[in-house]
Design a protein around this nucleic acid. Structure first.
Lengths: 215, 215
DNA sequence: AGGACTACTGTTCGTTTGAACAGTACTTGT
DNA sequence: ACAAGTACTGTTCAAACGAACAGTAGTCCT
């Protein structure tokens, strides 16, 4: 589908450029004149682009070119529970889709996670906050990670924020609240539960969005 | 400039709608057909809109309508220090302009403020956080406000976050950190400093953006 | 070796479209 | 009272434009 020839890509980019610059698409003769060929060559290219699903042509309409494959407005999915084994970033899990620039977070966020407890309150992370998570499978000591913990009853995974620390083969997941006990996992001893790993790293925290004032 | 008649507004909105729906502007006859009048009426309206600076017409081009007054990509100014007396939302004060949907915050944010101390740490607001502020001159008890405090040396105003409480004519601005003393202002006694009010409310907090993980 | 696809030229045809000219009725500002 | 602007109708015209038909040369696949 997305197998455009170099020439077709040029023509598509020209259409996009004219749309940005002028606010309306070029006519077939505009395209022909710009590239220095005849009108019918432009028409052929447009029909090829339409065949490949890049554009749509309204018959008999002057400049009747509509871009499909629109530039997706930059946004992030808000993920809740995650089906076990499913890739974290699968948008099918998304509760909502928020229009935020992923690049606002550092490192750049791949999805958002809604905090639902007060376990990270001493790190300034309150219940209800949306945390921007950069999806990656490893982490460095001291980083706050989105840990995927398997829920034996239910068959889904649950994302929890924890501060990550590893010493040798022992990983400790700390809460930032003295009322919560850290979770200790010894990687050298295989989990008693062989169906799923006891935890995995979904990503690291890249920032936070609070959509309202705290009470 | 922006004095459009109801009819002209209708026509402008129709053009915007068609641009979104079809990807290209309507022809004069499209407009005429939609509103049920002759092509020349459409032309008159377009020329009126062009005269008022709403659109630009490319002569002899089919559908040669370009929208000026583009939909501003939704974003928020990041305000630092504010010149005394200047309206808070004056974008000239903006350090940066971040592309965030103001509606993500509740109430909707008008600008962002970068927190530069740990005075609100117990409310989950850390130094470096960007707080979304809804500009308004009043506040209710218990709300977190962006207070504009006049700096005698320097001649500028400084925005500080405080929790607002008022009892009769006495306003107390609390920090959310026991190491900071609350600021008490008695509104019944005029300020010794007659040049500027000792404080004013720039707005109330509508949310928070943290562009990075806490250390 | 042949079919499909790309990348064009050249010409003709008919519709779409913007432009221009002339005119009407109503409202608003000075 | 008059000019300017709004909100239209109606007609004509030429340029802009998409569509169709016919044809060429090259590449790529099987």
């Amino acid at each position: 589908m997305a197998n455009l020839t170099p020439r077709q890509t040029e023509i598509l980019q020209f259409i996009e450029q004219r749309l940005r610059q002028e606010g309306y698409p070029p006519s077939q003769r505009d395209i022909a004149e710009h590239f220095g060929f005849a009108q019918n060559a432009a028409r052929d290219h447009l029909q090829a682009l339409a065949r490949k699903g890049e554009i749509e042509i309204s018959p008999n309409d002057a400049r009747g070119i509509r871009l499909l494959r629109e530039q997706t407005p930059p946004g992030l999915p808000l993920l809740g529970r995650i089906a076990a084994g499913a890739p974290v970033t699968a948008p099918s899990n998304a509760e909502h889709w928020l229009e935020i620039d992923p690049g606002l977070f550092q490192p750049r966020a791949d999805f958002l996670h809604r905090v639902d407890g007060d376990s990270m309150i001493d790190a300034g992370i309150l219940p209800g906050d949306l945390v921007g998570i950069h999806a990656q499978s490893g982490a460095e000591n001291g980083q706050i990670i989105a840990a995927c913990l398997y829920e034996p009853r239910g068959g889904f995974e649950r994302i929890t924020l924890k501060r990550y620390r590893r010493k040798g083969s022992v990983v400790t997941l700390h809460a930032e609240n003295p009322r919560y006990e850290p979770i200790v996992i010894d990687l050298s001893q295989p989990a008693e539960d062989q169906e799923a790993a006891p935890f995995r790293i979904a990503g690291i925290m890249g920032g936070l969005l609070r959509t309202g004032a705290p009470r």
